[in-house]
């Protein structure tokens, strides 16, 4: 993968809800294969930023350029809905905090993983099923659960299934919105481990939103700290967490419970 161009180049991006700005003046570059964590307290605009970058929310001002697999540079705000959906089907993934938002809860696990394949034109049942089975194995879901719907799965399994569904079409960029909150600590650790190894194997670029600094520490290369809709600090994760510069970041880091 060439790294001459950033995958995502964001300049002065902002999204406004009515009279209020959800986030504003965001500048960032995301490089292929890079994991970027966005941290901040709730209400700081993290999820709004993620929604804006992934075109789930409209861009009120600024530009977002995406360098597509074919090599062309796309100005996301100018794309038509069908083109955005095509990106969603083939190049992007989105892992929701609540797996029920990202899965079809009453469709079998195999069907959930197979759906993105079928949406991109796969029409061979045997191949779809074999690929789904491979992915379930990769995310450590037992092969005999392939025909069970996610309503029968535990929280951790649902989240892993959601990850499989997102990665099955080999995306280049995955957005994750608090993927580990709501899971207990040991399941969180396993899930993060899984995400980390998949990201390394597949060379994915990931933007992960989290309020948990430990998550950022574990899997991200770089970290953005947000407060009141603005980025207050950014840098290598270790630098931001070990040597926070801004007063807010210092407060955030010092507020971690030491066990």
């Amino acid at each position: 993968m060439t790294a001459d161009l950033p995958l995502l180049e964001v300049r002065g991006a902002g999204h406004r809800y009515g009279a209020r700005w959800g986030c504003r003046d965001i500048d960032l570059d995301l490089w292929p294969g890079e994991v970027l964590a966005v941290v901040g307290e709730s209400g700081s605009g993290k999820s709004t930023l993620l929604g804006t970058l992934s075109q789930r929310l409209s861009l009120t001002e600024g530009t977002i350029r995406y360098s597509a697999a074919g090599g062309e540079i796309l100005d996301l705000a100018k794309l038509r809905e069908s083109e955005v959906r095509a990106l969603w089907r083939s190049e992007w993934g989105f892992v929701h905090q609540d797996a029920a938002d990202g899965l079809r809860m009453h469709v079998s696990a195999g069907g959930n993983v197979g759906e993105p394949l079928m949406a991109t034109g796969w029409r061979h049942y045997g191949n779809i099923r074999a690929t789904a089975a491979q992915w379930l194995e990769r995310v450590e879901i037992p092969a005999d659960r392939i025909d069970d719907p996610p309503v029968t799965f535990s929280g951790g399994m649902r989240q892993r299934l959601q990850i499989a569904r997102n990665l099955v079409v080999s995306p280049r960029l995955v957005f994750m919105d608090e993927p580990t909150s709501g899971l207990d600590v040991s399941v969180q650790a396993r899930l993060l481990d899984l995400v980390r190894s998949l990201v390394a194997d597949l060379g994915l670029a990931v933007i992960i939103v989290t309020h948990d600094l430990a998550v950022a520490r574990l899997i991200s290369h770089r970290t953005l700290v947000m407060k009141d809709g603005n980025v207050v600090e950014s840098g290598l994760t270790d630098r931001v967490l070990d040597d926070p510069q801004g007063p807010y970041t210092q407060l955030l880091v010092s507020s971690i419970l030491q066990g």
Partner: peptide
């Protein structure tokens, strides 16, 4: 409108799986 019909195949997939 977007001719996005992957969903219909999910139904057929589920039938075959079941």
């Amino acid at each position: 409108a977007l001719a996005d019909y992957g969903l219909m195949y999910v139904k057929l997939y589920e039938d075959i799986a079941r």
